[in-house]
Amino acid sequence: MRSFGYTRPDSAQAAVAAFAAAGEGARYIAGGTTLYDLMKLDIERPAHLIDVTAIRGLDAIETGGDRLRFGALAPMSEVATNRTVLRDYPVLAESLAKAASQQLRNMATVGGNLFQRTRCLYFRNGAGGTSAGTTYPCNKREPGSGCAAIGGLDRGQAVLGQSASCTAVSPGDWPIALVALDAYVEILGAAGTRSLPVAELYRLPGNTPHLEFTLAPDEIVTAIVVPKTRAGRRSAYHKIRDRESYAFALASAAVALDMDNDTVRQARIALGGVATRPWRATAAEAALAGQRLTPDTAAAAGRAALTGAVPGRHNGFKIDLAQRTVADALLIAAKRTTA
């Protein structure tokens, strides 16, 4: 691992100031479960780390009023077990509980989790890994070097949102649930504060897959805000993995339903595990609006959710799997009581 300077400021303002003072190669670090991991692989190479975890008051979980507000430094494990979240927004609790292990959920923050980087095997094949000397080209890791996943071992790659430069899957679970619920983030940077929908944090790979986020380098997320919705109680995060626990999604669906008896007033659907960024399935939502929810209409919504999907060599199964995942998620959510 390359050498770096290290600073641990105790306020968000001091962190932004430290970032500016540190100059080129500065990065913020929270739990470190992605960044430190990738530094060991020589994929991330920060010259300076600004550790934000000593900032006070940035880990509060607020559930009163007309929104949920999660301080960016709240650990995943804390939000996953918050009583209000468990009861009123199971999609949020499940997206966290089904991610990583309890050890990592204790370390990782709900703010940092938004910036988790892809698990694409070719991307993670950095010079610091165990197969050093045989690194494959990757446009995300080394811009312009090519993409070995395309035409390669692409079983885990995306079927939605990919480009000729990159097919890496956006790995998160929590961002999928947040996108389904129209959550937004509060941001602090040298230029001041702003807010942004979580959905707009993520770029499509296009010709610049190394640029994944829309946040400016000096900006930090200070809070995640979820507008309250009565669809929250009829929500679910359904995640299909190679093993039953502690694995990334092959396909996942975050759904929330506003129902009038058996009829769907409004459905919110987002996909994980199959796309290059958190994927809101608006066509599937439209297909369900005003319909009775039945196994047939749920299956039709699943098919609509994968509109435009393009398989590679080994990942065609993901299209069928994701369609069924969406359908199952809808039926699971619909059974949940709103009382």
């Binding site: 290290y6 641990r8 670090i29 470190g32 479960t33 430190y36 991991d37 780390l49 550790d51 975890t53 650990p75 494990s77 292990s101 309890q102 050890q103 990592l104 204790n106 370390m107």
Partner: peptide
Amino acid sequence: GQCGACTVHVDGRRVASCLTLAAK
């Protein structure tokens, strides 16, 4: 952080010590 063999407690919470910067 994938195998758990390095698990210890920090302030009473279990963590993967291999992915925890000692500085923290």
